[in-house]
Design a protein around this nucleic acid. Structure first.
Lengths: 334, 334
DNA sequence: TTGTAGGCGTTATCAG
DNA sequence: CTGATAACGCCTACAA
């Protein structure tokens, strides 16, 4: 910047004013400065600027699994609106590990991100500890954190799973397997609660033996499903609590020599772009990814702009049941 | 840091030395400093550090489409190894737009990233112009940029598509449709070249009417495929030049009331985790995503560590044809 | 309208 | 071993 200043024969203050439009600068000088900038190839150093201003125009985004299409969809829209607002996003991935998550958040906080959007992984304690200290705005997405009064945008998981389970029950199923996500996340807990609520409402007794932990991952879901399938009273339907796990469920069904939906019905949380193209067409719960991303981005933007507003805002959106062909009615002896 | 210094009764210089291990500090003082740090809850300000050091321990990662599973897989491993090395990654998404790409690169360069990993979108001119000026290390992934002597890790696209096309030809197909990616990317061009090479080698005449532009997107691939399917001499097989486009192709085939592989065979670039679970099991070319990510990350790391080494290194890996069930032999009248 | 000077939090250099 | 001090590049009073 100093180079530009001498080249244009002005002071650095004038250059700064011209570049940022902070103070009025005569047209003549502005032009000289523009030209000098071109010639020198000057680029403003955002690091120095950040140090002085105490703001980085960067927000940190930490998600549990960047490989999960649901998260990538959300990340894409967040990235899009944040970029439009002049913000960069630093993406971190925690691999569903609480310790990695703490590291990543530290890393982001060190770099003075202006805000943090987090899809929390694992245990809430670490999160709270890390976030309590700072006054960096935080918005939680997808998963809530108990006792942390941050903004959040989530889906009504319980309601969504409840209606999907009800749909399966209405098809005549009674033995319904459930492949659960990690219960240390709010989504894991809420979705399971939806399943139980639907069962209870239908007067079906809940049995622990029908729910198996899949940890939101295809591999774990595979072995969990295998356990279900080898039971003498194997379920006639299975619900998987996220997209990755549905894949594992389907793989297990195939390897067990079974057919979906012929032998067993399947439904899962999260939709796929290809869900209605390949067989069997999967019945799923579609999340409003676009809205989630937009709301999260706007929430963080408004927080950053106005740090004082204190009452946390929770936005809860609805999932949508996409009925396709992977669930089939069952004839029950009467 | 000053607070820590006064709390520990030492100078900031000593604190800095203790924190970074830059200079020997007596055990006694070190302990006092440690304690003061705990009490105050001091965290080193990475921005100030960056300004002083001229290094941000951050690398920029710009990809054309964060929604594409191929890219997310690669991003995940890059993120992983970079994080392990203490680097943060700033992710930007260009949506296959050249202008957006320039913006994103500017943004990253402003923030003084130590290195740049780029899956280039669109036209090469802008890229070159932006990258020539800086001496920030760059490694290109997936797509090359003509006349830019940067490190790169790519797949031998021509070879991979050639062998896939040969496989289809050996099945007896002669009219083979090709849904191409954007020809302003090296992958778009190289993959098409592979298709043409296989045709030529088999003595099949190449016809422009059988190749349609899908721009690496499902939607464009859908309409492109529809054009192919409504021809009187509709192809008996179609190859799609990436994962997103295969989805579009399959959707079009379904909507045209056709069956794959009964009526028409399909193969595509990029594998899916679920490719062998749903019907039809898709025949694909699997890319070595793990290796691509690792190599790219290590390349940028070594560049950052040692800026002087000048000769660019190109790493080219091989794709692997995953033969499944979406291509079927054809009986030809003789 | 323009210039000068001080400081953001660190680190490096050099005396003590 | 430890402490004072000068940058790093930018922005903002305040003065001219």
């Amino acid at each position: 910047m100093l180079d530009v200043a001498v080249a244009a024969g002005v002071s650095v203050a004038t250059v700064s004013a011209a570049v940022n439009g902070t103070a009025p600068v005569s047209k003549k000088l502005r032009e000289r400065i523009e030209q000098a900038i071109q010639e020198i190839g000057y680029k403003r150093n955002a690091v120095a600027r950040s140090l002085k201003m105490g703001t980085t125009t960067t927000v940190g985004l930490v998600v549990a699994d960047i490989t999960n299409p649901f998260f990538t969809d959300v990340v894409a829209v967040i990235q899009d609106v944040l970029h439009r607002a002049g913000y960069a996003v630093m993406l971190c991935c925690t691999d569903e590990s609480a310790s990695l998550q703490e590291e990543q958040i530290s890393l982001l906080l060190d770099r003075m991100v202006d805000g943090l959007i987090i899809a929390a992984a694992g245990d809430d304690d670490g999160l709270r500890r890390h976030l309590r200290g700072t006054n960096t705005p935080v918005v939680l997405i997808d998963r809530l954190c108990h006792d942390l009064d941050a903004d959040a945008v989530v889906v009504d998981n319980e309601d969504a799973v409840k209606s999907a389970t009800k749909y399966i029950i209405d098809l005549g199923h009674r033995n319904i397997g459930y492949i659960s996500g990690s219960l240390s996340t709010s989504t894991g807990r809420d979705r399971l609660a939806g399943y139980r609520a639907a069962l209870q409402e239908a007067g079906i007794e809940y049995g622990d033996e029908f729910v198996r932990l899949g940890n939101f991952r295809a591999k774990d879901a595979y072995t969990a499903t295998m356990q279900l399938l080898t039971r003498p009273d194997r379920p006639s339907a299975i619900f998987a609590a996220n997209n990755l796990m549905v894949i594992g469920v389907m793989k297990a069904i195939r390897d067990a020599g079974l057919d979906c939906p012929g032998d067993i019905s399947v439904a899962g949380f999260d939709d796929f772009p290809w869900a209605d193209v390949f067989q069997p067409n999967l019945t799923t719960i579609a999340q409003p990814v676009q809205a989630i991303g937009e709301q999260a981005a706007e929430l963080i933007l408004s927080r950053v702009a106005d740090k004082k507003r204190r009452e946390p805002r929770h936005i809860v959106l609805k999932g949508r049941l996409m009925i396709r062909e992977s669930c089939r009615p069952i004839m029950r002896p009467r």
